[in-house]
């Protein structure tokens, strides 16, 4: 009888332990890799990182004159800033649209970015893919003879397919075949060969995470095939830091523009020959409501 009592008690207390805490299990087993890049652009080149639905990024992008101007030119700061003010908005988690205005030639551009694939933590999808389109119009009246041009003659276009992968959670590399087109090209120097309307290129962008909130970045836009004489491959090297909804980006960049059609076709500075400028972008993301 003792043994019966003993087994009964063991059973009883064994079952009693059922009221112990539940096993804790993670709800999120797989999902997209977060933030292949901190934000939607490096310096001037776009990244696969897109906005969430109902989020708005207001961004101020600027750079100065060439650092090679030296102290006399206060390393380019005396040249004044080229500024692009822009707003992008996440229509859905996959689609964002944006508008911006660049102070150089008063170029106003509309753009979209559509996320086709997200890289998954499980690696079932190993890359993130997004497409981007941008159409700009030069609204300046009295520069480069633009006042004589019609609306359609003032248009410029850009398209790219961005393919990126984050490796080991530390390093992201993006490769982006791209094309730019200008309806009108201008011969700036007498005797200059006819400039190209269309440029093809492959953009490279990278991010090395230094910590959870900061990273080193670069972008490189080599032109493939025919190019307008004097056009150099754009390059930029940057540092970015994130704090409470802001992403600050500081960089040295060759090109003066923040629209890739111009960076690809209109850059005449060779970064590696010392022709680069200081620039910085401020991104502020606002949440405009629930998804």
């Amino acid at each position: 009888m003792k043994s019966i009592l003993l087994s009964a008690f063991i059973l009883f207390f064994g079952l009693e332990s059922l009221s112990a805490q539940m096993q804790r299990t993670r709800a999120v087993q797989d999902g997209p890799v977060d933030e292949l890049f901190l934000i939607g652009s490096v310096a001037g080149m776009s990244t696969v990182t897109n906005l969430e639905a109902n989020n708005m990024n207001s961004l101020i992008m600027h750079n100065f004159g060439l650092v090679s101007g030296g102290l006399e030119d206060f390393y380019g700061l005396d040249q004044g800033a080229a500024v692009r003010l822009g707003i992008d908005y996440g229509v859905t988690d996959k689609l964002s649209i944006g508008i911006g205005r660049t102070s150089v030639e008063d170029n106003v551009d509309l753009r979209f970015k559509y996320t086709v694939l997200r890289q998954l933590k499980s690696d079932k999808v190993p890359v993130e893919v997004a497409v981007k389109g941008d159409i700009g119009v030069t609204t300046q009246k009295n520069n480069r003879g633009f006042e004589d041009f019609t609306f359609s003659e003032r248009l410029n276009y850009f398209g790219s397919v961005m393919i990126a992968r984050q490796f080991n959670g530390k390093f992201t590399l993006q490769v982006a075949p791209m094309v730019s087109h200008f309806n009108t090209v201008v011969i700036d120097v007498v005797g200059q060969p006819e400039p190209e309307h269309t440029h093809f290129g492959v953009g490279f962008a990278g991010r090395i995470k230094l910590g959870v909130r900061n990273s080193l970045t670069f972008e490189y836009l080599p032109v493939l095939g025919e190019r307008t004489e004097g056009t150099k491959n754009h390059f930029a090297l940057g540092y970015e830091i994130e704090t409470g909804g802001h992403v600050f980006q500081m960089f040295f960049m060759a090109g003066q523009w923040f629209t890739e059609q111009h960076l690809l076709a209109r850059n005449t500075n060779d970064f590696f020959a010392g022709d680069f400028r200081l620039g910085f972008n401020v991104n502020r993301i606002f949440s405009l409501g629930k998804k």
Binding site: D34, N55, G244, V247, I285, S287, K291
Partner: peptide, 8 residues
Amino acid sequence: GNAKRDKD
């Protein structure tokens, strides 16, 4: 509703 804030 804000990925940056979620991350923070």
